[in-house]
Design a protein around this nucleic acid. Structure first.
Lengths: 119, 119
DNA sequence: CGGTATCCTTTCGGATACTG
DNA sequence: CAGTATCCGAAAGGATACCG
């Protein structure tokens, strides 16, 4: 495929399962911040392997930042949205608005702030 | 997963390989319109199985419309973006703009209208 | 707590051949 | 031309156990 196409390349990490949901969960945390264990708890069904894999990818893409507090025991890891990550959430909001405009089966989501995405 | 979440459900078809690229190819056609064989030619690497599968999904989602001309032989099939499909292209544009703002390795795409997405 | 390692299953997509 | 049918391999993901 066309490796140089911005849209195509952006689709690459947009499209991976869990990736956007992880960003959304971080967004719901204080200052776009959550711990590994919180993410795990808030994303029912995700396995540790997949979660840690996605976190690495997202960090490599510059969408999140990892901060480890070595002074505490056990070690405490925090993940936080970067400005780029926050900006991507805005696009997800547009996507949600698109869905609410053009898909008719989202009445529940229209009535209230959806508990999951809270956008 | 949460089947009722608008964002989650939207991600479902955003995220499938080729789906957005098919929409982009249609967008590049006259009035958001292209034939099956054109799509196949314009999406190098896609197999007939995958293409026909994606087209069915996109039609079921109301993003494209299929029009068959039975009077001609061989049968001629046209696929066209619906208003919902066109609206989704706008979100893809936002996505592209996000990428161009936050990812530094897209200078070629910045300089010109990318030949592939033409957004 | 925050992961990694291993195994195993399933799904998806690619290749190809064929048909109305 | 516009697909469908069949087969196959790679890769992703789930379950589980374990470690610093």
């Amino acid at each position: 495929m066309d490796e140089n196409c911005t849209v195509y390349r952006t689709m690459e990490y947009i499209s991976k399962r869990w990736s956007m949901l992880i960003l959304l969960e971080l967004f719901k945390g204080q200052d776009g911040n959550k711990r590994y264990s919180e993410l795990k708890a808030d994303l029912p069904g995700i396995t540790p392997k997949v979660l840690s894999g996605r976190l690495k990818e997202l960090e490599a893409e510059g969408l999140i930042r990892k901060k480890v507090d070595m002074s505490s025991f056990p070690v405490r890891s925090d993940y936080q949205l970067t400005p780029a990550g926050f900006a991507l959430i805005d696009v997800v909001k547009d996507l949600k608005n698109w869905a609410l405009t053009w898909k008719i089966d989202n009445e529940a989501c229209k009535r209230m702030d959806c508990a999951r995405c809270r956008l």
